[in-house]
Design a protein around this nucleic acid. Structure first.
Length: 272
DNA sequence: AGGGCTACCTGTACGC
DNA sequence: TGCGTACAGGTAGCCC
């Protein structure tokens, strides 16, 4: 599920409720996520204060006392919910107990994971060390884009590559390229300067809008029991196969194609 | 080196 | 009702 906007929304939720709060206890219900949850976190995290919470790409990072950091990835279906007492659901895997709250990590498909790092090892981890710039950072600019372009790669696959730019996934790549008027199958070394500039602009515009609407709910994006994600109503092409193009109106229908095994939605009339 | 493909896991929707 | 198939926001780790 979660791409950058959804992870940003989760980060804000965690930040406003758990930053500066002390973890009283950790309980592992099922350690078999994508990577096994280290049982050491039960003892290591007990009685530590979460000093800072932030996002890098699609990763959530919790900084803790004792120079520790917790890396969390939500995979496709991971989410957190906050309760006042232990209130279990199917596919709950981990529980953090705080003074008056309980925070539960749930993940149906178990593609998510939680890993403990010493802070100084965090950015050298395999997950973060080659990650591309944040889309909102100055580093994601025309010069960077132009230099990083490799032939033989479609522009959609380029944007999906976390080493190129952090945080974009399957939904937003379709939406961004529709907004930019660029065909997702375009080979990226054939992009004009103008198109690259448009893609950078559209990336920021779409992500910002999605964050402001609380992300996108397709199936099960949940924050604290609430299905939010009103950006779903704002999607222009994703999941809109055979509907008329919102830009050319009746002239063309939205098509679904496959790129690297994943669905891409586009209008072949207005995306060139 | 860098891209493509598959595996990982569970649930849902749809055709027959 | 059941069964088989396709598909779903993720990435690591193979293979070429």
């Amino acid at each position: 599920m979660p791409e950058l906007p959804e992870v940003e929304v989760v980060k804000n939720f965690l930040k406003s409720n758990f930053q500066k709060k002390k973890i009283i206890k950790v309980k592992i219900i099922n350690k078999n996520l994508r990577f096994e949850i280290q049982s050491i976190i039960k003892t290591k995290l007990t009685n530590l204060i979460i000093t800072k919470i932030y996002r890098r790409g699609k990763y959530l990072i919790l900084l803790l006392e004792n120079n520790l950091s917790l890396m969390i990835h939500l995979g496709m279906t991971g989410y957190f919910r906050m309760t006042n007492e232990e209130n279990r659901k199917k596919h709950d895997h981990l529980i953090f107990y705080f003074c008056s709250k309980v925070l539960i990590f749930n993940d149906v498909r178990k593609f998510g994971f939680i890993k403990l790092y010493n802070f100084e090892e965090l950015n050298d981890s395999k997950h973060l060390k080659d990650m591309g710039p944040e889309p909102f950072s100055d580093g994601f600019n025309l010069n960077y884009f132009t230099k990083k372009i490799k032939r033989k790669c479609s522009v959609k696959n380029l944007l999906m590559n976390q080493k190129f730019v952090a945080g974009l996934g399957n939904i937003y790549c379709s939406e961004i390229l529709f907004d930019a008027g660029v065909n997702p199958e375009k080979i990226c070394n054939e992009l004009s300067k103008k198109q690259i500039e448009k893609i950078i602009l559209s990336t920021r515009r779409i992500l910002e809008k999605a964050i402001n609407f609380g992300g996108t709910t397709i199936k099960n994006f949940v924050v604290n029991n609430e299905k939010i994600g009103y950006f779903k109503n704002k999607l222009k092409v994703y999941g809109k196969e055979n509907q008329s193009c919102p830009r050319c109106k009746s002239l063309a229908k939205i098509q679904r194609i496959k790129q690297s095994g994943r669905s891409t939605f586009l209008c072949t009339k207005c995306q060139n």
